[in-house]
C-alpha cells in the first residue's frame, strides 16, 4: 500500500484513472463529470438565503435549480479526496501565496487574493457562457467527441497561455 503515500503518481496513470471514473459515472449515475454548475447552484442557494424565494423567477435558476445535486456532491467529494491524498503524502499545508506567484509578484497577500477573486469571477462567468469548464467540456465533453468541447478546451488553454505569459514573463519580468 506504499503507493497511497507517494507524493505523485504518473500523469498517465492518473489520466487513465480519471477516464475510468468517467465510465463509472456514466454507468452508475447516467452523468458526465463536470464541476462548474455546482458554483451556480451554490450562488443561487446563498442568494435565496439572503433575498428569499423571489430569485426563483430568474430564468437561469429554473435551468439550474439552487439545490444540492449530484454535481454539487462531486465537488464536495473533490475537496475531501484531495485532502485525503495530501494528508497521506504529508503535503497538506495552509498556504496563501504559491511559490511562482511570490517569485514574480512578491509577498503581498492582498494582491494575490484580489487576483484570485478576479480570476475566479472570470472563470465562473466564462464557464457558464461556454457551457462547461475544464472538467465538463475539457474532459467529459471531449471524450464524448462534442465539437464544442474540443473548441472550448483549445480556447481555455489559448486564453490561459497568452494571459499567463503576459502576466508572468512580460509584466512580471519588468
Amino acid at each position: 500500500m506504499n503507493w497511497l503515500f507517494l507524493k505523485t503518481w504518473s500523469p498517465y496513470l492518473v489520466g487513465i484513472g480519471i477516464g475510468i471514473l468517467s465510465w463509472i459515472s456514466l454507468l452508475l449515475s447516467n452523468k458526465a463529470i463536470g464541476c462548474s454548475t455546482a458554483y451556480v447552484r451554490t450562488g443561487g442557494m446563498i442568494e435565496k438565503f439572503l433575498r428569499g424565494k423571489q430569485i426563483k423567477e430568474r430564468k437561469y435558476f429554473q435551468k439550474f435549480e439552487p439545490k444540492i445535486d449530484w454535481e454539487w456532491m462531486l465537488v464536495i467529494g473533490i475537496i475531501i479526496g484531495s485532502s485525503l491524498s495530501a494528508a497521506l503524502s504529508g503535503q497538506f499545508e495552509i498556504e496563501i501565496i504559491p511559490a511562482i506567484w511570490s517569485q514574480t509578484f512578491g509577498n503581498n497577500i492582498f494582491l494575490r487574493l484580489i487576483s484570485a477573486i478576479i480570476g475566479g469571477t472570470l472563470i465562473g462567468f466564462g464557464s457558464r457562457l461556454a457551457g462547461g469548464c475544464t472538467s465538463g467540456h475539457g474532459i467529459s465533453g471531449s471524450l464524448q467527441l462534442s465539437v464544442g468541447s474540443w473548441l472550448a478546451l483549445a480556447l481555455f488553454f489559448i486564453g490561459g497561455i497568452i494571459t499567463s505569459i503576459s502576466l508572468f514573463q512580460l509584466l512580471g519580468g519588468l
Binding site: 464541476c35 462548474s36 455546482a38 458554483y39 465537488v75 504559491p98 506567484w101 487576483s115 484570485a116 478576479i118 480570476g119 475566479g120 469571477t121 472570470l122 472563470i123 465562473g124 462567468f125 466564462g126 464557464s127 457558464r128 457562457l129 461556454a130 457551457g131 469548464c133 475544464t134 472538467s135 473548441l151 472550448a152 483549445a154 480556447l155 481555455f156 488553454f157 489559448i158 486564453g159 490561459g160 497561455i161 497568452i162 494571459t163 499567463s164 502576466l167
Partner: peptide
C-alpha cells in the same frame, strides 16, 4: 466564454 475562462485561469491558477 472559452477565452474569458482562459484569462481567469491564468489569474487564478486553478479551474473549478
Amino acid at each position: 466564454g472559452g477565452l474569458i475562462f482562459g484569462v481567469g485561469f491564468a489569474f487564478l491558477g486553478y479551474c473549478p
